[in-house]
Design a protein around this nucleic acid. Structure first.
Lengths: 138, 138
DNA sequence: GTTTATGCAAATTCTTTGCAATACT
DNA sequence: AGTATTGCAAAGAATTTGCATAAAC
């Protein structure tokens, strides 16, 4: 895992630091979208709150993670699927948020349906969030 | 308008107060999703910041407004479409956020395509957010 | 008259910034 | 060695809570 995270960081021209490796490892380990608070909870023994904020910003800028829409007020993030598969553009995300366990995950099985916008609108990015009850909680 | 907003409040078993009427009128007037900051800007002469927070919470609880997904960090709200039209359930929201003017509006013309979730998932609410450039800004 | 909403102050929580010390390449 | 990252302190936003006063029913 140490190697894997280091490699990912290097590929993205980021310096390899233990905070970045640990944050990345947490995203890989848990397969759900994480908020800053989730990461802080997980890593507070090791790193400062502020460093985690900066790590998230760095990862966002490098397109390593993306924001996941959420109506809870706190921003959540998830790894970008860097499969260079033309089928789903990496900017099209279908997420499912379970109202029982609170977890949000990416549903890879689903492709975003094509949306036909009214005349004059230009679409750059589309996100779909389904809220309900997940497989584990139902 | 005073009558209209009063009626809406009464229908929802809420006391009619001037703050509630003004917040409601603002939502009806501007047709875009509004954040607390937007409302505060509009109404700060008349009402306290805190009262606006509490009004938003009250309206959410009464299902008069709903949260609009947004990746900006601040929560936005919009009126619930209380048309008892079977075509769009009130639990399906399609919003468009313009990255130029920053406005988010509900696109009523669009119906959400049916999403077929994997086995075991139960859907309660679906939100689609398209980001791009709106008719006015393109 | 009773209940609920408001304003103000203050407490919390969330996020960002500055800067010296440290770690990475 | 040179540059970027971290931790700490502190500033700045965003949001919530408590309580006495005022307004709604």
């Amino acid at each position: 895992m140490t190697e894997k995270t280091s490699d990912i960081l290097k590929e993205n021209n980021l310096r390899v630091t233990s905070c970045r490796r640990d944050v990345l490892a947490t995203f890989i380990g848990k397969k759900v979208a994480l908020s800053h608070a989730d990461l802080e909870e997980e890593l507070k023994e090791n790193f400062d709150r502020v460093t985690i904020y900066r790590t998230l910003k760095t990862f966002l800028d490098s397109d390593l993670i993306h924001k996941v829409l959420d109506d809870s007020g706190t921003t959540k993030y998830a790894l970008c699927a860097h499969d260079h598969d033309e089928a789903h553009h990496d900017h099209e995300h279908v997420h499912f948020k379970c109202e029982v366990c609170g977890n949000t995950n990416c549903i890879q099985e689903l492709n975003l349906p094509k949306i036909l916008l009214p005349e004059g609108y230009i679409s750059k990015e589309t996100s779909l969030l389904v809220q309900g009850i997940c497989k584990n909680c139902s």
